[in-house]
Design a binder for these strands. Structure first.
Lengths: 158, 158
DNA sequence: ATGCGAAAATTGCATTTTCATGGATGCTGC
DNA sequence: GCAGCATCCATGAAAATGCAATTTTCGCAT
């Protein structure tokens, strides 16, 4: 029962060489930069993810959006409730399968996400500009490689 | 007011070329693999992060742990309440600064995290084995480069 | 046609997180 | 020694989340 020792701080922490932590931390820190911009515009992170997930692909399902946004389905349903209430998206029945709900941007949602995408692209450019171009390209390429190992149902993956 | 169109699915979604999304998704998908192991052992993700954050560095502060675990400070305080209740960690006053609370693993916490770290290292090895060794090394290296741009307070960064 | 298993979305309840704030200690300049 | 400010942790009310169970619809074999 020795007391916790304050010294010996940056000895060799497990997490500092742990891949999953490096990824989570890198993702979190870079994302936080943009999330601060979102805060200033009064848009929450989950709302941004849904809006962004709909850009270039109108008509996602609830389950599909949940998978895209890395959330669970019930969480997505409740999030969509709020976004519908706020006039950002709307629900529509799928003409072929009445179990399915298709989510689409409202004009208001489209206007908001259009602005945000501009800011996101600019921020991404700033982030990438911090590194030699080769590294920047390699990073994206490696991330794609990681993701390609995880094809989950999404047909016609690019 | 055109209805959401179900077709035109995998055209060219914004997020598929968005760095922050690639990072978040890669991190999430790989992490989920290990989180499923955690679930089977009855350990929640935040608890694992705290335990892992303490390995090799006893005596972290509450704020420090929050930063390490990518959580907010009040979240960490309440998470630590539960972990203290469950006998995983304990609080101790810093001898030099009475505002500071030092968090240390209990013997029970140490035993549990020791097992988990073994599983984590094994999972990491499995993940890295999916790629050519050069890619695996490059990925870690690039993530470190990203993180090195974000030295936040932590002194003596490696 | 009809019944049966599977899939999609929602709802309810308990838990957890967040945001804003409060209380206490430490530090600096005078 | 003391005022003023920064830092650290804890708390409380409100919102969001996770998990399990429910409902509706579909696909398919009979």
């Amino acid at each position: 029962m020795t007391a916790p020792q304050p010294h010996d701080d940056s000895a060799s922490r497990f997490i500092d060489d742990y891949l999953l932590y490096l990824m989570a931390r890198a993702s979190h820190l870079i994302s936080e930069e943009f999330h601060e911009q979102l805060r200033r515009k009064g848009v929450s992170v989950p709302v941004w993810r849904v809006l962004a997930g709909l850009v270039g692909s109108s008509g996602e399902t609830v389950t599909g959006l949940a998978e895209i946004c890395l959330l669970q389905q019930p969480t997505m349903t409740k999030l969509l409730d709020r976004m519908v209430r706020d006039g950002l998206v709307r629900r529509a029945q799928d003409p072929r399968d009445r179990r399915v709900v298709r989510i689409g941007l409202t004009p208001r949602g489209e206007a908001i996400v259009a602005e945000l995408v501009v800011a996101a692209r600019q921020h991404e450019a700033e982030v990438l500009a911090r590194y030699p171009e080769a590294e920047a390209l390699a990073l994206k390429s490696l991330l794609r490689a990681v993701l390609s190992r995880h094809v989950r149902g999404r047909r016609g993956a690019g």
